[in-house]
Amino acid sequence: MEILENREEWKARFEEWWANYQRTGTPDWKAYPLPRNSTAPSGPGVDLSQSRLLFISSAGGYLRDEQPPFDAAHPLGDYSLRLFPVDTPLERLAFSHDHYDHAAVEQDPQVLVPLRHLEAMVDEGIIGALAPTVVGFMGYLPDVTRLVDELIPAVLEAVRAETPDAVLLVPA
């Protein structure tokens, strides 16, 4: 199935939006073409208590002292990944994403990156195991064709390497 249905129609509307953005210097979000699909992916459920869960975050998190931040100010976003260990101490995370207020996540990173909650759920037997790596990106990605062509293949490669049974996404 297609990740983005009616891709060419969407791309044409996006190019109009982007041209207007470049002309005016301001994004007109009322005119932005939200991606819309008609079909949801199908697949079997899993017994989470016997499964390996991988966590994906689009909060723009990265390792403060070891990784470069995302290009949060770019008008078309940043389609790269940051991978970090699921047992990362929360104080080692920083967030580069200009499209949400960081007050909550700076006070309590688990509002977006619930690493300690997930570990507790493993200890309680709710989750079988956690994949060792968190897959992270910055969720401001207005060009959905670039998301499909660049980001998703990279995410899938990172996911396959972790051999999970299930995946949790928490957007910002």
Binding site: Y100, A103, A104, V105, Q110, L112, P114, H117, L118, V170
Partner: peptide, 19 residues
């Protein structure tokens, strides 16, 4: 709220419920 997808900051119980 945007930027606090799992719950209020400091409210571990709410974050756990959503999760």
């Amino acid at each position: 709220n945007r930027g606090a997808t799992l719950g209020r900051p400091g409210d571990a119980a709410q974050q756990r419920r959503v999760l």
